[in-house]
Each structure stands twice: as C-alpha cells, then as structure tokens.
C-alpha cells in the first residue's frame, strides 16, 4: 500500500481535524478514498437489538440443555453462556436454532477449559464432563487424548483412558494407546493402553507386545490375562 503511515492522518480526518496537506493527498489517492469510504460506511451501521422474547427462549433452551447434569456449577456455565450469547446477540442475527448450536459449543468450551485447570481435581471433573457430552467434537477427543498422554497426574491420565473407551476406535485414540505401550511409561498407564487397544479390537497390537523383553512384569501378567479373557468371551 503506497499510503502506509497515513492511517493516523486518515483517522484524524474522520475526526474532523483540519490537515490541508492530507486533504490534498486524499483528493488524488484512490486507495485512501476507498479506505475513507469503508470507515464511513461502517460508522453508519446501526446496532441490531435482540427481540424481547430472546431472553426467555434462551433460558428455556438452556434449562433443557443442562437438565441431565443437574450440577450446581452448571449454573456458572449458564451464566457464562448467557453473557457470551447476549454479547453476540447484539451483533449478529441470532436465530434460536443457532442458539442450540451455540450452547453445545459452549459446553465443549467448558470441557476444554476444565481440562486445562491447575488443580488435578478440576481436571478430573473436566474428564467427567467431557465424557458426558452427547457427541463431543474432535477437539474434545483430542484434548482428552492429550490428557491421557501428558497429564502430570497418573490418576488424571487413568481417568482420561476410562473416558476414551467409548471412542477407542478413533484413530487419534488408537495412535495414543499404541504410543503408551512403546514408550517408557508407568505400568499403570500401559495397562490402560492395553485396555484401550482391546476395546478398539486391536488384538494384534497387544499380542505384539509379548515380544518386548523390557516389558514390566506387571504389565505382562495383565496382558496375558486380558488376552485370555478375550478369547473366552
């Protein structure tokens, strides 16, 4: 852009500051004229007001959405949702059907936020909450998988493994489970990896582990039992 550095003068011009030098430039510069036109058009936009029924309908939707959990802290999520939605309501045309989507997205935001908490107990709660989502999106599954692989607490990782059993056949989860078995991991976490692979029907992968001479004896014992039990089923 040839007029770099002139933005401040352009802003002053919009504010009504007299600057003959810039006025002269503006008169013969199509770029600056276009920019000026854009700012003026944007200035002319009116704020859209939400209609009166929105708040009531939103609350109804929210009540329906949050009923199954029935937890006190969902109220907090509700407040957050109300703030965010009312923020957007002023800006875009928010249809109630979009609202449902919005709330669903927010529950996932809450789940993701809980998984990042400093307190291990809060992260456990995040796992519980993520697992309770009807249809968590890929981002939530990826976050749970990350927790399984890297969380600083063994207990939190084991809880993540339990929550991921439902999604064991997802490629992300399978990949993580395989890595847990090859990496130098806590035996407890490796056992969780075996559970996940068997839930994903990756029996072959688990059988391959038998050849690993460095395998912890606890893990080996569990592995044999799990494979035997699978046969019997």
């Amino acid at each position: 852009m040839p007029c770099r550095g002139r933005e401040t003068e352009l802003a002053e011009h919009l504010e009504g500051v007299a600057n003959p030098e810039f006025a002269a430039h503006l008169a013969q510069c199509p770029d600056c004229q276009a920019l000026l036109g854009m700012w003026q058009r944007m200035g002319g936009w009116a704020d859209e007001a939400p209609d009166a029924g929105l708040a009531v309908r939103f609350r109804q939707r929210l009540n329906n959405e949050t009923k199954p959990m029935g937890r006190g802290w969902m109220r907090w999520a509700g407040v957050a949702a109300a703030i965010v939605v009312s923020f957007f309501a002023g800006r875009t045309t928010t249809d109630v059907s979009d609202l449902r989507q919005e709330v669903r997205g927010l529950r996932e935001v809450v789940a993701l936020a809980l998984l990042e908490q400093q307190s291990a107990s809060e992260r456990l709660r995040g796992i519980r909450y993520s697992a309770a989502l009807e249809k968590p999106d890929e981002e939530v599954i990826a976050a749970l998988t990350r927790t399984l692989r890297t969380d600083s607490s063994v207990d939190v990782r084991l809880a993540a493994a339990d929550a991921l059993r439902r999604y064991a056949r997802t490629e992300t989860v399978k990949q993580a489970a395989r890595e847990l078995l090859t990496e130098n991991e806590s035996p407890m976490v490796q056992v969780a990896g075996i559970d996940l692979l068997l839930a994903a029907r990756e029996r072959g992968r688990v059988e391959q582990m038998r050849t690993n001479l460095n395998l912890d004896e606890n893990v080996r014992k569990y592995l044999e039992r799990a494979l035997q039990q699978e046969n019997w089923e």
Binding site: L124, D155, A159
Partner: peptide
C-alpha cells in the same frame, strides 16, 4: 480434595473433610 498415587509404596489418606462436588482419585500399583 485429594488426587494421590503411589506406584510401589503404600498410600494412606485420612480425610477430615471433603470439598463438595469435587472428584478425587487414589491409586497404587503394588
């Protein structure tokens, strides 16, 4: 709240009071 793990050692916890609505977890290997 307590989230505690002992891989090879013993895990002993005496909780006087627990926080409401907060999950906890206790685990050991051996």
């Amino acid at each position: 709240t307590v989230v505690a793990h002992a891989l090879n050692g013993k895990l002993t916890v005496r909780l006087k009071q627990v926080s409401r609505d907060k999950p906890m977890s206790f685990s050991t290997l051996n």
